[in-house]
């Protein structure tokens, strides 16, 4: 299945059927995959967060993606990313009665497609990081598949799982409360000031700061290589 979609995307690229960003994204991830035997410090991580219209990634729509990179222990403000995929309601009012719905959908599609292409160029072949990463991964993959028949190739690191692993070791503590590893609890625990909560960029920035602390802890525990942290 995985092999199958890749070949299809490659073929479409050959015929110039897909945007250039999709093709180069695929190419770089194929030619330069993440190597688990290099130190994670020099690796570029892209910490991201998404917002959607709901929690069902198959039905709900992507509203925004916020992301920021971390490399060599530094979060780079310049190398951050924020995109809003929202209808502009103030558009051409007279045209709405005629083809209102159609126009909206078209605009949505155009916005989402542009945002995804920017995002692909931005993430490149970095390791992606998110808190509760599954949801973000799924909703982005869903959108990518719908638009370009593409799925994300980057490895994912879930800060929730990572924090759990670093704090508790391989053995789960059966007594932990469900909320203990929420972004809020972790930030409070690691003394990271909770600002701009619940905007994708704000949460991405918080998660990046959390990752900074976690990677520091990991290094202290003797973990050095990418393979050590991508279990």
């Amino acid at each position: 299945m995985r092999f199958f979609w890749k070949r299809r995307v490659k073929n479409r690229c050959k015929f110039g059927d897909l945007p250039e960003q999709v093709c180069s994204y695929l190419a770089i991830n194929e030619s330069q995959p993440i190597i688990s035997k290099i130190p994670f410090r020099s690796q570029r991580f892209v910490v991201l967060d998404t917002e959607a219209t709901g929690l069902d990634y198959k039905k709900d729509k992507l509203i925004s993606i916020g992301a920021i990179s971390l490399q060599d222990g530094m979060i780079s403000i310049e190398d951050s990313f924020e995109t809003l995929i929202r209808q502009i309601e103030t558009g051409d009012k007279e045209s709405i009665p005629v083809h209102g719905i159609l126009k909206r959908d078209l605009e949505w599609a155009a916005q989402e497609e542009a945002a995804l292409l920017c995002f692909l160029s931005y993430i490149n072949n970095s390791i992606l990081v998110a808190h509760h990463a599954d949801f973000d991964k799924n909703i982005i993959n869903h959108a990518l598949q719908k638009r370009f028949g593409l799925l994300l190739l980057n490895p994912f690191l879930d800060t929730e799982q990572f924090a759990r692993r670093l704090e508790k070791g391989p053995f789960e503590d059966p007594f932990h409360k469900p909320g203990d590893y929420s972004l809020d609890s972790l930030c409070t625990r690691y003394d990271i000031e909770l600002n701009d909560r619940h905007t994708s960029a704000g949460d991405a920035f918080l998660t990046a700061q959390l990752l900074q602390v976690l990677l520091c802890t990991a290094r202290k525990k003797g973990l050095t290589f990418i393979g050590d942290i991508l279990k």
């Binding site: 916020g66 310049e78 951050s80 600002n195 704000g202 991405a204 920035f205």
Partner: peptide, 11 residues
């Protein structure tokens, strides 16, 4: 196009 939300935070 860096994130304005994040730049504002730094500011």
């Amino acid at each position: 196009m860096a994130s304005n939300t994040i730049i504002d935070r730094v500011k």
